[in-house]
């Protein structure tokens, strides 16, 4: 991380800590919502952006996490028991879902995960004894931390912010480790990675499992944030939205999900001035954004750098040509 990035990170953190004081409860709610989706899409970014596995079933893990915490809390268990349980359960299911990834690739993998999401949604909707079916689960409590209640929206915001930073830091560490290198090797050229001794099977499974665990944690935070869950936010459509967030933000960029989740969560709210047309504007904006920046928003710096280098190179060339011309 170079000096400029460190400064930027501190500025961002300061903004995130100061912002709530200028926001009313709705703004705070939206900001917390955004953080939850950052956490969820960071997991998806690992699977899709770093390891290059196409996954269209992320919302299923998000849902499994949310339901795990909600059901456990309704059974009288603590949130602090539910959260690791949600993460662990998602990790295991993610591991299991990774197996098809070993058999099939690219679009077929995307289809398989999409099918998994549909199946998970059917269970959430139909098994009323467990999930409350379409009635959902209401009045999910917010946890307390060291005797401090996180019931208020500001407290819960700080809690979510803390969780997001902790897990982002963990992911950062993971990606800097040899594991992270192995993930990108898997994405860029699996055949070469294998010949270099990367355990393709293991890393494919891990990329799914870790990504799923992040979704599970985010789901747990989501359940406590909204305090109500039903199957609707965990459909294939939601998975597709999460995929959209990752791709729009910039897959394979560490901070891509931060921008991507802002596009998916905050942009539609901000576009509400367009009244009935706001989702039309949103959809059109996504199309135009993709055409303009197919590699996502965070490819802008790379693109600027590439342009500058191209300019410098051509300047150097013409300078050299001028020199030669002078000599001639």
């Amino acid at each position: 991380m170079n000096k400029r990035n460190v400064v930027l990170a501190f500025l961002a953190l300061a903004a995130l800590l100061v912002a709530p004081h200028f926001l009313k409860s709705y703004g705070l709610y939206l900001l917390t919502y955004w953080l939850v989706f950052i956490l969820a899409t960071m997991g998806l970014n690992l699977t899709v952006g770093y390891a290059g596995q196409k996954s269209l079933g992320h919302a299923a893990f998000f849902g499994i996490g949310a339901y795990t915490v909600a059901i456990m809390m309704k059974a009288g268990l603590s949130f602090w028991l539910g959260l690791p349980a949600a993460a662990l359960l998602c990790f295991l299911v993610g591991l299991a879902l990774g197996f098809p990834a070993l058999r099939v690739q690219t679009i077929y993998l995307a289809f398989a995960t999409l099918g998994f999401n549909t199946a998970a949604w059917l269970v959430m909707r139909n098994e009323e004894w467990l999930t409350g079916g379409t009635f959902g689960i209401n009045n999910i409590a917010r946890p307390s931390l060291f005797g401090m209640s996180l019931d208020g929206s500001l407290a819960y915001y700080h809690f979510t912010l803390g969780m997001t930073i902790i897990f982002a830091a963990l992911l950062w560490g993971l990606l800097r480790s040899p594991w992270g290198k192995a993930f990108t090797a898997l994405r860029d050229n699996p055949i070469r990675a294998e010949s270099l001794g990367v355990d393709i099977r293991g890393y494919t499974l891990l990329s799914f499992a870790i990504g799923a665990a992040y979704a599970g944690i985010a789901g747990a935070l989501f359940a406590s944030l909204v305090q109500f869950i039903d199957p609707a936010p965990f459909t294939v459509g939601s998975s597709i939205m999460m995929y959209l967030m990752v791709v729009v933000g910039g897959p394979g960029y560490f901070l891509g999900p931060v921008l991507g989740a802002a596009v998916g969560v905050v942009l539609p709210e901000w576009l509400r001035f367009a009244q009935a047309w706001y989702l039309f504007v949103f959809g059109t904006a996504v199309v135009l954004l993709m055409i303009w920046l197919p590699d996502g928003l965070l490819s802008i710096p790379d693109r600027l750098r590439a342009r500058r280098e191209a300019r410098e190179a051509s300047a150097a060339r013409s300078a050299a040509a001028a020199r030669h011309g002078g000599n001639a």
Partner: peptide, 8 residues
Amino acid sequence: KKALIALV
């Protein structure tokens, strides 16, 4: 990011 937050 900051600009975005300001915007929001």
